[in-house]
Amino acid sequence: MNTVDPMQPPVEQDLFSEMEPVLVQADGGLRFVNLLVDRLLFMGFIYLLGFLLGMFAPGSVDWLADINPIVDFLLTSVLFSLYIGFQETLLNGITIGKFLTGTRAVNADGTPISAQTAFARGFSRAVPFEAFSALGTPCLPWHDSWTNTYVIKEKESRLGNN
């Protein structure tokens, strides 16, 4: 039988503690799988695009054969940034790689990222050697720290009052 001691003050329960987000960051291994899957799918997308352009507009991609390696890097970086930005915008912080690993990009407070933040994350990846910034523990690459975002494990995190 539970009795309340009248001499003890009542125990207060914090009603808002269940509403606070709990963000469990994805580790470097999951982040690497995300990168690998997204890069491979991006390469497949670019090859498909090149094939379709060559098929329906012969000669339209001939200029790519003699492209400068620096221009090639810049063009590829911009296209990858757009590719990732569109996915994170349309899928609410998820890319195909993140979908496969059960992760999602969110703002530091646990709210969904905006389109502006998604594209800023994408274009931050174009900075040379940016991928090496993910090697630390905890894994916080520049595209996360510059945009004040995290990649979280969805099943282990609680966003808002879920």
Rank of each mutant, 00 (worst) to 15 (best):
Y83D: 12
L23G: 03
R158I: 01
I46L: 12
V71N: 07
A65Q: 14
P112D: 14
N161D: 14
Y47S: 04
E12C: 00
M19K: 12
R125F: 03
C139H: 10
F129H: 06
F132H: 03
L100H: 05
V37I: 15
N162W: 10
N68K: 06
L52S: 10
G122A: 01
A131R: 01
A134S: 14
E18P: 00
T95H: 04
R121M: 03
D14E: 09
T101M: 15
F123D: 11
N34Q: 06
D14H: 00
P6I: 09
G160A: 08
L52C: 05
L79E: 09
S60M: 03
W142C: 05
G110S: 11
T111V: 07
Y150Q: 06
V71K: 11
P21R: 03
Y47F: 15
S60W: 03
E154R: 11
T149V: 09
P21G: 02
T137V: 14
V151P: 01
T76E: 08
L30T: 06
A26Y: 00
F56H: 10
E20C: 00
M7S: 15
G59W: 08
F32P: 02
V11D: 11
P9G: 05
E18T: 03
R104C: 08
F80W: 12
G44M: 12
A105E: 02
T147F: 00
T89A: 11
T76N: 13
T89S: 15
T117H: 00
D27H: 08
Y83L: 04
Q25K: 13
S157T: 06
F56E: 09
V37T: 10
N161F: 09
T103Q: 12
P141E: 07
R39Y: 15
D14C: 00
L100R: 03
T76P: 00
N92V: 09
G122R: 01
V151H: 05
G59N: 09
L64N: 08
R121L: 04
R104P: 07
T101Q: 09
L40P: 01
E12M: 04
S124I: 02
F45T: 13
L52H: 04
M7A: 14
L75P: 02
N148V: 10
L82V: 15
